[in-house]
């Protein structure tokens, strides 16, 4: 029997699956805790076991309270986050796609220098740049405006790298030549011919840019001091900080429900788009 089982299609192992289930539990327990905690009132949070429901089921009233607390500031933060994500991550994807395509398909002078500078810059810790960026933006009068968040979000070196690798194989030179012989300009060729072929790579780049913008914390923390410009991340920590210090007004249930609401859109996006980003990532790792 065992000689008939090809090593290429080994039989499933219960032991291995069991070990992986343990890791799966570790991954899921905090999320389960969050989900269960979002159904509890503040009293239940403090008095009932973490991994089971509380005495009352307050899920919907928690959501309502989260959305309406402080004149609906949570919705404002959500709107800000969406704005930063749409303009920031959208713009970052566009810039990275165009630049990756340019680097892959045109052999212009200075191409290697661009690569060297990018590589060097990626090694510099992003947060190390934050303080000087803040001082610069403050001199330019950009702090406490949406631009302070959007402009730095527009650069994604990882996205550029991904699109560069992807464009090298995905767009054949012959096709570009054919478009040129037909008299199409370079920019038009990019938009009409190349963009469609780059789609899986673009989805991957966009998704990762969305995650980094949606999760952005450090930059808005230093750039913004007006709560009505905060994204969700900074807003939630502000709510959480409310529980300590002078005049503490803990709103644990709202922080927890707000956290859950912050996670949901990204999880849905990843689940729905997994076919795209997984193929895009595989292509990126070939090189």
């Amino acid at each position: 029997m065992s000689t008939l089982t090809s090593p290429l299609r080994p039989k499933r192992s219960k032991l291995l699956t069991g070990a992986m289930v343990l890791y799966l539990i570790y991954t899921l327990v905090p999320l389960l805790w969050l989900l269960l905690s979002a159904t509890k009132t503040q009293d239940d949070l403090l008095s009932t076991p973490g991994l089971w429901f509380g005495k009352s089921f307050a899920f919907f009233s928690n959501i309502k309270d989260t959305l309406t607390y402080n004149d609906g500031i949570f919705l404002r933060w959500l709107g800000n986050t969406v704005l930063y994500v749409v303009v920031g991550a959208g713009g970052a994807t566009l810039l990275a796609t165009a630049a990756g395509y340019g680097l892959a398909k045109y052999k212009f002078a200075g191409r290697r220098a661009v690569f060297a500078v990018l590589l060097g810059a990626v090694a510099v810790p992003g947060t190390a740049l934050a303080v000087p960026t803040f001082l610069m933006f403050s001199n330019l009068g950009l702090t406490n405006t949406v631009w302070a968040i959007i402009i730095p979000s527009l650069v994604s070196p990882f996205g550029l790298y991904l699109m560069w690798v992807y464009a090298t194989d995905a767009v054949p030179h012959e096709l570009l030549e054919a478009a040129r012989i037909d008299g199409a300009g370079e920019v038009r060729t990019f938009f009409t011919v190349a963009l469609r072929l780059l789609a899986p790579g673009i989805v991957t780049t966009l998704l990762f840019a969305v995650v980094s913008t949606w999760n952005n914390y450090f930059l808005p923390l230093i750039m913004l001091s007006k709560p009505n410009l905060y994204p969700l991340t900074v807003g939630l920590t502000q709510w959480s900080n409310q529980a300590t210090g002078v005049g503490a007004r803990p709103i644990y249930n709202l922080v927890i429900t707000g956290s859950l609401l912050t996670i949901v859109p990204l999880v849905i996006a990843f689940l729905l788009l997994q076919r795209f980003w997984q193929s895009g990532l595989s292509a990126g790792s070939v090189k």
């Binding site: 890791y23 999320l31 805790w33 949606w214 914390y217 991340t233 920590t237 999880v267």
Partner: peptide, 16 residues
């Protein structure tokens, strides 16, 4: 599922 935590904002992960 193992990839899922990456979609959780770092701030939310720390709060949680």
């Amino acid at each position: 599922v193992i990839f899922l935590p990456y979609a959780v904002p770092g701030v939310v992960a720390v709060l949680m």
